[in-house]
């Protein structure tokens, strides 16, 4: 019993010190934002490797998710004779939920794990210490641009995901299952609310972008500088990001759509 309490205390303390380190890390990262604005090139390069290189996986996944929504939505709605509402059903599911959430999950797997591995290996090969000794702050030079890039790419990728998904739903709905093309788009236009749906979706993906980039970069920066340490950190990035995304999604949804 005593042993159990001791272990519990020790692990609680470890988690809290880690949380403290993570917060300090975040503050330092944010403090570097100004210096990035002077050198937008650093940000551009990272936007490319974090954002642009995730395009393909996001587009393909968005297309398939949209197509599945089209199929499932049609079967349910046609029971009520409401096939015309397929457009709004697909669009609302994507913009409110699936766009931000699935994009963030894919992002954590594709870009987040890569960021952790990159930073962890830079630490393991002393590149970060080397930079410090050259009087260059690795947080400003390496971490902040990657953080900003992740944070800014996420809403764009989520918008891409939703847009492609809506087209996927249309391909199936109107192309294959014979829903009226005009109704698909018209219902969407009239029913989808700019603030309630679109802005809330964007807010979600901005928050997910913030959290996933933070987790990925911190896990890399805090990794034990060995191959095993980096591999564990990469796993933790994907697992912790997924938990945070899904947990936060529930909270945000409750806050945003709770009063409807």
């Amino acid at each position: 019993m005593m042993q159990f309490l001791q272990n519990l205390g020790a692990s609680t303390r470890t988690s809290f010190t880690k949380l403290g380190r993570a917060t300090y890390f975040l503050i330092q990262t944010l403090a570097g934002i100004f210096s990035i604005l002077i050198r937008p090139r650093l940000l551009m390069n990272q936007m490319f490797s974090v954002g642009v290189l995730s395009f393909l996986i996001i587009t393909i996944s968005g297309l398939f998710v949209g197509m599945v929504l089209g199929l499932q939505g049609f079967y349910i709605l046609s029971d009520f004779g409401a096939e015309e509402s397929l457009g709004i059903m697909v669009a609302a599911s994507l913009v409110r939920e699936l766009g931000p959430v699935v994009t963030a999950l894919l992002f954590a797997g594709r870009a987040g794990s890569a960021l952790t591995a990159e930073i962890g290996l830079m630490k393991a090969t002393e590149q970060l210490s080397g930079m410090e000794m050259m009087a260059i702050d690795p947080i400003r030079r390496i971490i902040t641009p990657r953080f900003l890039a992740g944070f800014l790419s996420m809403p764009l990728l989520a918008a891409l995901f939703s847009a492609v998904g809506i087209i996927g739903g249309q391909l199936i709905g109107t192309g294959l299952l014979g829903v009226d093309d005009g109704a698909y788009w018209a219902q969407m236009q009239t029913q989808l609310d700019f603030y309630d749906d679109i802005i809330n979706g964007v807010i979600k993906s901005v928050i997910f972008g913030f959290v996933t980039s933070w987790i990925a970069l911190f896990e890399g920066y805090d990794a034990i500088p060995t191959s095993e340490g980096v591999s564990r950190a990469t796993t933790r990035t994907v697992v912790n990001s997924a938990f945070s995304i899904l947990g936060l999604d529930f909270i945000l949804t409750a806050l945003m759509f709770g009063d409807n």
Binding site: L121, T125, E126, Q127, G130, M131
Partner: peptide, 11 residues
């Protein structure tokens, strides 16, 4: 200047 044992070049 510091010369690291591993070189610590940016890869």
């Amino acid at each position: 200047g510091m010369l690291f044992q591993s070189g610590a070049l940016l890869t």
